[in-house]
Write a protein that binds this DNA or RNA. Structure first.
Length: 702
RNA sequence: AGCGGGGUGGGGUAGUCAGGAAAACCCGUCGGGCUCAUAACCCGAAGAUCCGUGGUUCAAAUCCACGCCCCGCUACCA
């Protein structure tokens, strides 16, 4: 078989925070499975990625923390590198965009496009915040839509979807400081993306094998018309523009990041001492694959290919098998809403391969899939441990106890049939991974383990060992041979476990130095040492240990206030809880808040409290307030009604209904005029939750 | 609003583009077997009007039309 060159580009994680499971499921893991598979197949793989370290969000994080952007990206880049190592993801080069090497490549690339006539200057209007003293990216401008009066963000209305020009937006506010920004003229360099509509469509016409969603999305996007994009920004943090007159500007982070694929390839070649070697992938015959989640599609199927066309002489993407999203119990990962599972946290608790298994078997290839803790535990325990791990463990312990080495094979009719069946499955796995059907491949590996278990049960070697030692040896030989196959075909999915199996089979090198075709070969009569279980069982109780996660605290808006007919001190409130609808609650606020104070106000509502009748009226939830023994103080959330109030780092996993007694054990207190759980502030999507009035520290919130 | 994806037994998914014999797989439930193995393994059973309505067809989960519901994207956030 002739060797292929495979380039694998994995979307660059942004160095403004920790990696989360979505990045792993959508880009890192499929890229790694694919890369490891091709290396096993004997192909020449160049797989690169790196930390994306420029852009406004990083400068803002740095300002908030009072450090330099460099310190932020150094911190997260180091963390990414460490996490990637722990996850067993193998890159030829995992680089970073703040390196001098990368900057130089970006500037050369930029200049070449400039010389080729694809970059030109143009004046434009942009929002400038006089208080922050900076131009604001769209994301940081909030205002009112001139068409529907809804909330508009940047260049678009969130409510009606209208696209807005900067000057149209009403009552614009800087999202960082709340100041009204001014429109200011600024000159930027534009990339002539519009020139590539036809070439891109032409190029796409040969991509019939792409995933449907990727291809259709891309084609529609282009057909709507491509606009030239400004590719410089008024910023200090980024790659300097290599053109006179633009010394105060930086290259737009997106433009710079995608060039990382090229710069990281060149840097790799330099590192291994063959500085021209990258050309074999970028100028010679090679297939370029890019792994990313769906939000990244246009950058990899339109902008980057157009940039490569404008540059000339470099290979375009061959396939972009973009994934959908991994959601968490049905909700999208979102740092600002406190929804997410961060890689450094999960690595503390679980084996990388257990995480890799669950994400592989549950990969969002065709549509969003959900990470659910109970499902993770179930699949780990019932599939990975029970079917896969146990097959290997029971075979090896049996061999170790009774033979000490891989027993020799005489003949065994059923076993031969099984081997043939397994070989067919291996071919199917090969085909599946080659087509980036990773989920399917993983399922088929499990199928092999299942067939092994069945064969073992039917053959009953524990009986044969007493009656027919030779046949018993043959049966176990067959099983061992199947385990060898499993080790090889699992290597792309669970590199660590695969290598452990390999060593338990008595080999003293690494499975990753071997080839895919060896999965068809017989096993050598190795001595084996005492086997140990590969994976451990998990207990859901150990995972969801924090009692706070039981609470479902939502923001609610008071729409109506009535006096309770049978109680002097109680109000009956009607509240709007967004997606949860309207609710009636009873609250004892009458002594401290009058009706007018309350109407329209946003409050914190414990939404999953077991409903209770208070003097004849059922209260569906409980309004949370601080109590200093003399009076009550309302919590003052700012977010949208229906959105959650959370504590960072504690995953929300509310129980159906919580009793008042259970809730009382969870201590929420006041501190510095804010609400705290333990030493962490309660937050909503707008930030930390303040408390009305002048409340002392240490008051209980109920 | 536009575009894209999705709605399949209790849960999670495959199958849909190239329509066709009993709708496949994993988990869960129930019954049985086994005891080598991390109370793990294996076999069997129950359980689905394949979102709804209408249409095309000898035949529809699959094609067409309309409707309902979820999710994502919409490039100067990454």
């Amino acid at each position: 078989m002739c060797m292929e060159r495979i380039f694998i580009g994995v979307a660059w994680p942004y160095a403004n925070g920790s990696l989360h499971l979505g990045t792993l499921a959508g880009a890192l893991l499929p890229g790694d499975i694919f890369g490891r598979y091709h290396r096993l197949k004997g192909n020449a793989v160049l797989m690169v990625s790196g930390s994306d370290e420029h852009g406004t969000p990083i400068t803002i994080t740095a300002e908030k923390k009072g450090v330099t952007p460099k310190e932020i990206v150094d911190h997260y880049h180091a963390e990414h590198v460490e996490n990637i190592r722990q996850l067993g993801i193998k890159f030829e080069n995992f680089s970073r965009t703040s390196s001098e090497f990368h900057k130089k490549v970006v500037q050369d690339f930029f200049l070449r496009l400039y010389e080729n006539g694809y970059i030109y200057p143009k004046k434009m209007l942009a929002f400038f915040c006089p208080n922050c003293n900076r131009f604001l990216p769209d994301r940081y401008v909030e205002g009112v839509c001139p068409y529907c009066g809804g909330k508009a963000r940047g260049d678009q209305c969130e409510e009606c979807g209208a696209t807005l020009e900067p000057e149209e937006i009403l009552e614009p506010k800087c999202k960082i400081c709340g100041t009204t920004p001014v429109l200011k003229e600024t000159e930027h360099l534009f990339f002539k993306l519009s020139a590539f509509e036809e070439p891109l469509l032409q190029w796409l016409s040969s991509k019939k094998f792409w995933r449907d969603n990727v291809l259709r999305f891309t084609q529609n996007f282009i057909k709507k018309g491509l606009k030239d994009r400004p590719i410089t920004r008024d910023l200090e943090w980024g790659v300097e523009v290599p053109i006179k007159g633009y010394e105060n500007k930086r290259i737009y982070v997106w433009f710079d990041a995608v060039i990382g694929y090229l710069s990281a390839s060149m840097e790799w070649a330099k590192k291994i001492g063959e500085p021209d070697k990258w050309k074999e992938w970028w100028k010679g015959e090679a297939k370029h694959y890019y792994f990313l989640a769906k939000d990244n599609i246009p950058f990899h199927t339109i902008i980057w290919p157009a940039m490569l066309m404008a540059h000339g002489g470099l290979n375009l993407p061959y396939d972009v098998p973009a994934n959908e999203y991994l959601t968490l119990s049905g909700e999208q990962f979102s740092k600002s809403r406190g929804i997410g599972i961060w890689i450094p946290d999960v690595l503390k608790k679980f084996d990388a391969d257990a995480i890799r298994y669950y994400l592989a078997i549950n990969m969002p290839e065709k549509h969003d899939t959900d990470w659910k803790w109970d499902d993770f535990v179930a699949k780990n325990n019932n599939e990975l441990v029970a079917i896969y791990g146990n097959f290997i463990h029971r075979v090896l312990t049996f061999i170790h106890k009774n033979f000490g080495k891989i027993p020799s094979y005489k003949e065994e009719e059923k076993g031969e049939k099984l081997i043939e069946e397994v070989h067919n499955i291996i071919k199917e796995i090969d085909d599946a991974i080659g087509k980036c059907h990773f989920k399917d491949g993983m399922k088929k590996i499990m199928k092999i383990a299942q067939l092994g278990n069945r064969y073992l049960n039917e053959s009953e070697p524990w009986k044969l060992i007493k009656e027919d030692r030779e046949k018993c040896a043959s049966v176990l030989h067959v099983c061992a041979r199947i385990i060898k196959s499993i080790a090889i075909v699992s290597a792309p999915y669970m590199p660590n476990a695969a290598d452990k199996i390999w060593k338990m089979l008595g080999y003293d090198d690494s499975v990753h130095e071997h080839g895919w075709e060896e999965a068809f070969d017989d096993i050598e009569p190795n001595q084996i040492s005492s086997p140990a279980p590969l994976f451990r069982k998990l207990d859901l109780k150990d995972i969801i240990e924090d009692e706070f996660s039981k609470l479902d605290i939502r923001i609610a808006r008071i729409v109506d206030v009535q006096n309770h007919p049978n109680a002097d001190r109680l109000y009956v409130l009607k509240v709007d809880v967004g997606e949860l609808g309207q609710r009636t609650i009873v609250a004892g606020l009458k002594e401290w808040y009058n009706e007018e104070d309350l109407k329209g106000r946003k409050i914190a509502l414990l939404a999953n409290l077991k409903p209770a009748k208070l003097r004849g009226i059922t209260s569906e939830g409980m309004l949370l307030a601080a109590d200093d023994g003399k009076r009550a103080y309302l919590l003052l959330p700012q977010g949208k009604e229906g959105s959650r109030i959370f504590v960072e780092g504690i995953e929300s996993n509310p129980v159906e209904k919580i009793t008042y007694d259970e809730f009382r054990k969870i201590k929420l207190v006041t501190k510095d005029g804010k609400a705290f759980y333990r030493d962490k502030p309660l937050k909503d999507e707008k930030g930390e939750i303040r408390i009305d009035g002048n409340v002392k520290d240490g008051c209980i919130i109920r």
